[in-house]
Design a protein around this nucleic acid. Sequence first.
DNA 1: CCGCTTTGTTAGACACGTCTATCGTGAGCC
DNA 2: GGCTCACGATAGACGTGTCTAACAAAGCGG
Lengths: 222, 222
Amino acid sequence: MQAISRASEDYLKAIYHLGTHGDPVTTGLLAHELGVSSPSVSAMIKRLQDGELVDRSDARAIRLTGQGEREALRVVRRHRLLETFLAQALGVPWDEVHAEAELLEHALSDRLEERIDAALGHPTHDPPGDPIPPREGPHTESWGVPLETVPAGSRFRVERVSDRDSAALRHLGQLGVVPGAVLDVEEQEPFGGPYWVRVDGERHALGIPLTRLVHGRTEGEP
Amino acid sequence: MQAISRASEDYLKAIYHLGTHGDPVTTGLLAHELGVSSPSVSAMIKRLQDGELVDRSDARAIRLTGQGEREALRVVRRHRLLETFLAQALGVPWDEVHAEAELLEHALSDRLEERIDAALGHPTHDPPGDPIPPREGPHTESWGVPLETVPAGSRFRVERVSDRDSAALRHLGQLGVVPGAVLDVEEQEPFGGPYWVRVDGERHALGIPLTRLVHGRTEGEP
DNA sequence: CCGCTTTGTTAGACACGTCTATCGTGAGCC
DNA sequence: GGCTCACGATAGACGTGTCTAACAAAGCGG
């Protein structure tokens, strides 16, 4: 119950995020993700292990314990609620909400989190489409499939857009590639060439890196 | 220009607040205010002095330098903007906004501060009536006179209520003693007895400690 | 004028979170 | 099997912010 430091929260959140992408979470990966050296990660993991928040029984991967995952989800919930709130209450553009929420998420009291959740009508997703974990109870991330893997000729409904790269997010927003949008994947040029997609009647070219940021689900043929 | 730590911000803010009350700011006073030991204060003051944020040329009082005061005012501004915003946008009751703003004030980016300020229409005062410092430029606190010093028979306009004691604040709010309210001070019982004041036609007794929290200005006779 | 009380500072320790430099170790490859 | 390379852990240091315990200085009462 003793308070968890901001740094610990950042580590737990990063372990959680990297964990949802399937790859085993390693020291080096975490160090890169958090922008710190790997000895720093080693030291922090040791502290988190002492606090029963991470599990190192598998030497090849860093895993969260049940308690660690609960704490990570608390941070993720606050982050995504804040993103939603900032967008809605203040009109903060969707490529900025991530950075602001990153700053505020560690300073949000349970009471205020509750008020924000209620004021927003208990939203289930934040602006980029990430699901907001419940205050307690199970949670799944439901990524859908990356746009990258979708063959030409498909109709694709956008569910989630990664908000890690603010500039990319802004660009996608300008093209209309937002959660809920429906894309017709018209063509994929070979050898890493762009995807041509039709959004709202407009035809746009998306480079491979962009298509990796967009997740969703294929629908019936166009 | 290098970022100032949260702890430093808290010290600067506390020095500023204690300074506005007239008394010379001492190590012990700061220690009490911040809930830390006085050696901790000594150490921090030394660091702040090294950073040119406090001035110890007067051995009997801790003073802010120009830069130190600017930094303190930045924190105060963020705090009071947040209080106003939380009250307005989320309906957080006025006895809670202080504690929430206390948590969030260190995590507010300039950009978001700007957005909040604009969304609120550049407010000049927060809910308890504290003046919001401008983003830059001079600022005065303008306390008015404490209700405690007002003689019976006066009419008194409330300008500011201290938000340090949440329970007292809630109580005063229930009585209608809020900024803008006009009180008729009907009677002050001797030997520390209560003040009898009429607010909105209702007669209420206020103990001395409460009357010290309320500042304002006398108006014409009732 | 001298001792006591009050106040602030120094000394030394600790927890946290970070770094660089170094050491171990395990997997893959010849 | 032995070498190399990548990776993680350890060692040692530092800055920040805190503590307790001991010391210094200053005012005040007698």
